[in-house]
Design a protein around this nucleic acid. Sequence first.
RNA 1: GGAGAGAUGUCCGAGUGGUCGAAGGAACCGGUCUUGAAAACCGGCGAUGUGCAAGCAUCCGUGGGUUCGAAUCCCACUCUCUCCGCCA
Length: 445
Amino acid sequence: MLDIKIIRENPEDVKTRLKGRLIDCDVAIDRILELDTLRRELIGKTESAKSEQNKASKEIGQLKSSGGNADAVIEKMNSLKEEIKAFDGKLREIEDEYNDLMLGLPNLPDPDLVAGGKENNKPTCYVGGVAPRGFEPKNHVDLCTDLGMIDYPRGAKLSGNGYWIYRGMGARLEWALLSYFIDTHVMDGYEFLMVPHMLGYECGVTAGQFPKFKDEVYMVTSDADQQPHFMLPTAETALASLHRDEILTEADLPCKYVAYSPCYRMEAGSSRAEERGMIRGHQFNKVEMFQVTKPEDSNAAFEELVAKAETLVRNLGLSFRTVKLAAGDCSASMARTYDIEVKIPSMGGFKEVSSVSNARDYQARRGQIRFRREDSGKIEFCNTLNGSGLATSRLIPAIVEQYQQEDGSVLVPQVLKRYLNGREKISKEDKLRVKIKSAGGCGEC
RNA sequence: GGAGAGAUGUCCGAGUGGUCGAAGGAACCGGUCUUGAAAACCGGCGAUGUGCAAGCAUCCGUGGGUUCGAAUCCCACUCUCUCCGCCA
């Protein structure tokens, strides 16, 4: 949510900055200003009526306790009551519309962002990694299938298009990645959280998904459950609400969290032929970093999160690039976003494995996440930041393609070996072993 | 799933229809005293909205209702605790 004071004071500037997102909020902003004026007028009227009511009410109390007759005052109260009821009804109407519009406005992009969409995104760095040479490389779908790492057909049998099953070394590699990420963040001083996967509606409002992007998440409803819940599309949605409606002390900040969760997304209409395999599914795994900071500290926190995400990809030895998103490609809640994308050679390009964003006070306003300054005692909104650290569903394709060998096996990135009993590579024999041993139980797990 | 109890400010806790935004205590902040600290004493100490300001309004889990007037009465919901049952 934006600060109404900023809109009041400089509506044209707000309009211009939001146009950088390629959306036109002019009509909404004009209406908001109109409603804001109406609202304040009406508040004035309502409050003076209520003030009279309170005075009369006290008078009645005094009259009654001293044995006097209060009939005349009570008569006056009755007409006041009608008046207040009418004012309150109108005020509620105005505030409902006002709140809807305010919640619908996206965050202001940072001033240094380039306006426009994806085409204006700017890579800020490229890092090279391992690459197959001297033979015809296979794509990740074939590699994962041949090595028995991912079972696509049975995933589809269980749940339909957009679902897969990690098997054998595939499952272990996935788990190794998640463990490696979590360990790294914990060592960096982030608190590890495991959050509910089904969240109450308010979490969606605070994070900025609701009311506008309700259709992108899976709602979970049942007659027995009075409260609507939804499957989290990212752990950020949970973490953003962790300190909702709280006033933190200055000493509490910054809060640094890391959470692992599967992420559940509709991805409606985005299924494309080139996104075969695990590139875009309805469920994927992600380790999420999250920070709550003082406003003056959020730029540094943002740099820290970008650096942490980059370090993870670099340590995996993968080719990647970091991209500074143009205003129109940042998600609605975010003032700035950098994506980290790994190279997936078979797709001829890069795919996002991390998205690091600074929401500034946008989510904090929606969720009333505040802190008290120690010296002045003043209460201010916190800033919130989030970043994937990392999402795994594009990492396995990148790893198998970038680390594939001529014999069809795949080397294990150095940093993951300790999570895989020191194993050097994944080969066809692993698949065979899984098959044979599954009859009598897998001796390895 | 069954039975019961409860939800009040940073915390504990009083308040069952009228001057209650709310006693009292703790914590915290300022002061007196002290070589310093503790203790004691004095003063201060919620949020939000609105207004240039004084002020005014709203908030006692949430939402409705009754009433001239609700923290207090009624209804619904949410959450917490205790006991019983069931259970990964």
